[in-house]
Design a protein around this nucleic acid. Structure first.
Lengths: 187, 187
DNA sequence: GTCTATATTTCGATAGAC
DNA sequence: GTCTATCGAAATATAGAC
């Protein structure tokens, strides 16, 4: 029995992602994850060395998605960030649209992600997406008014898109385009 | 000793608010709250009947702040909501500016708030601010494009203002006005 | 890879003295 | 109003059989 390939690991991550989004990371026990998968708690420890390790793996998936965008942002000369922003926001909208649950779990469990990252990785503190993004907005070479617009645009995308399924129901498909044009109006 | 008036209760709430914001509701134990106050865990139970009761009290404070705004919104005829929105957003900005920590703790612990409210209050499910706000955005009498703009405007305010202290440092004071003008551009 | 069984810790909560 | 002491539940994690 069992899954032929290394598939159980992914099923664990899928269930964990769903439960972390519904109930929160702290409020979700390994027992719940195991029961929903029809296995026991101990089985999870064959695939992950700890509960934090599951969250860390979800972080890595998110990290891969945001890495291109943030790397590009980091290498951009300060005086070109504002001009490049609309294009970057469009790609951010695409990423969020295609991976809603993954962005959602990060937004809803920011503190848990931070703790897990800081415990496991003492490398450069360059790992957390939220943290790297924060640094761009704190760059005081860019005019404050522009940075506020940048922050607001991200907020608009997140609230407009991430909760879209719950709020707008079956109209959610049309929402992506509407968010895109709305956000571009303030850039 | 002890505080002359019913002041200890407020000190508990202040410490809890700070820790819930820093670490999250679930990740904060009553032991931590008590230690920071220089009392024991048991003392907390004289002032609150449970941990959830502390969160519930914080919810009530937030509820009072948002109640006027949402009541006004609920009584507004559907075809006047869009026109009234800019004025309501301005008042929302004022409320967030003056009570940043309180709005922050709600945003960062949405699931915990929902569970506490649903457990303690089986009244009308009209208690959670986020929930009532969601219902406005789901009202399909209002054109979808307008509702998306409304959602985006709230997102812009939240990201622009709530994390302002952490992101913008000593420039945070100027941010309020900048967020206000930025958000009005998309309404 | 998954199981049973258990170790260990920590939490929320209560009882009763002061 | 605050303390000491403790209970019971639930969680993470491990050991070892299969």
């Amino acid at each position: 029995m069992a899954e032929a390939r290394g598939d159980t690991r992914n099923r664990i991550l899928d269930v964990a992602l769903e439960l972390f989004n519904d109930q929160g990371y702290d409020a979700t026990s390994l027992r719940e994850i195991a029961e929903r998968l029809g296995v026991t708690k101990a089985a999870l420890y064959y695939h992950f060395k700890s509960k934090a390790d599951i969250l860390l793996e979800l972080h890595l998936r998110l990290h891969d998605l945001g890495d291109d965008l943030l790397a590009e942002l980091d290498q951009l000369p300060d005086d070109q960030v504002v001009a490049a922003w609309p294009g970057l926001v469009d790609r951010f909208i695409d990423a969020v649209t295609e991976n809603r649950d993954l962005f959602l779990v990060h937004q809803r469990n920011q503190r848990a992600f931070e703790q897990v990252i800081n415990d496991e990785r003492h490398q450069q503190a360059n790992q957390d997406i939220e943290e790297r993004f924060r640094r761009v907005l704190a760059n005081d070479v860019i005019p404050l008014a522009d940075r506020v617009r940048m922050a607001c645009s991200i907020g608009a995308v997140m609230v407009g898109l991430m909760g879209a399924d719950e709020i707008f129901g079956d109209e959610a498909a049309q929402v992506v385009g509407l968010v895109r044009s709305t956000v571009h109006e303030l850039l």
